[in-house]
């Protein structure tokens, strides 16, 4: 256990070297939030209605504030297993007495943790400058929000493990991984709430597990989901974690037989 804690600390020191870059990245990412406020304020002003698809203006602004925070948990740019396999650096991990899946999860956690820390000042500014529109959750919903966010991060890691492990079988997958994560982000409701869609598109997106990355946690934060429903969601995420982890292990174990020290 201690070796993993040390690894986390070392990974954190590694990302700390890029603190100014993190800071600028977080700063420029606030643009999306303020543009969203301007856009949706104009939409609600035009329609004259106080609600669109059961969302008030306060709901939608809170939605973008929370998704802005959840974007910091997007691990697509923090995970390098595929690049390591492709480049042959995976050998370093393979010969060491540790769990490779866990070690890469620690690298991701260190990166996300540092990203979250650098984002916090901007999050406070965003919340402060739009405080009159921010809806707060009830205490039980806040707890479920945290639980769903943590579980969905693990689920997303397992999903990405599958994509990264495919490098063993099919070679360089970095652009395919980027594309898959990009599509998953939209399917998760990161650009706008899934509730705004209708018909089969909405039903399809609600049936997929990606909704747990952005849409479901934010709905819980907005008190649009009851405690009983939240419990069901947590059970659902647990099942998806098991499915994704099972598949990733299958792809990983069969793939590692094809790995040579010079890369893939």
């Amino acid at each position: 256990m201690i070796k993993y804690l040390v690894y986390f600390k070392v990974s954190l020191q590694d990302v700390y070297a890029y603190r100014a870059d993190f800071f600028l990245f977080m700063a420029i990412n606030t643009v999306f939030f303020y543009v969203a406020i301007a856009l949706w304020s104009a939409v609600y002003q035009s329609t004259g209605d106080s609600e669109i698809s059961s969302y008030t203006l306060s709901n939608i602004i809170t939605y973008y504030l929370i998704t802005g925070l959840l974007f910091r948990l997007d691990l697509s740019s923090s995970m390098f297993l595929s690049a390591d396999i492709w480049g042959g650096y995976f050998t370093n991990d393979y010969i060491k007495p540790w769990n490779i899946v866990l070690v890469h999860f620690i690298i991701v956690l260190a990166d996300l943790f540092f990203g979250m820390i650098t984002f916090l000042p901007f999050f406070v500014i965003m919340a402060f400058t739009s405080f009159q529109h921010i809806s707060l959750p009830t205490f039980p919903n806040f707890i479920f929000f945290i639980a769903v966010v943590i579980l969905s991060l693990i689920m997303n890691y397992c999903f990405n493990l599958i994509l990264h492990a495919l490098t063993f079988h099919y070679g360089d997958q970095r652009s395919q991984i980027a594309l898959a994560n990009y599509i998953a982000t939209f399917l998760a409701g990161a650009v706008f709430p899934i509730s705004f869609l209708s018909g089969w598109v909405r039903d399809l997106l609600l049936a997929l597990p990606f909704k747990f990355l952005f849409f479901t946690p934010t709905e819980i934060f907005l008190n649009k989901v009851s405690v009983a429903e939240s419990q069901v969601y947590i059970a659902e995420i647990a099942i998806w974690i098991m499915i994704f982890f099972g598949i990733s292990q299958l792809v990983y174990r069969t793939g590692i037989k094809k790995y040579s020290g010079t890369g893939r």
Partner: peptide
Amino acid sequence: TANVFSSLFEVIITLTMFSAIFNNVESLS
């Protein structure tokens, strides 16, 4: 291929969002 697809996909996402907006309003500014 991935870059071309993600660029085209962004167009689809944005059009979907505009459709969702214009289901509720006739004009934007």
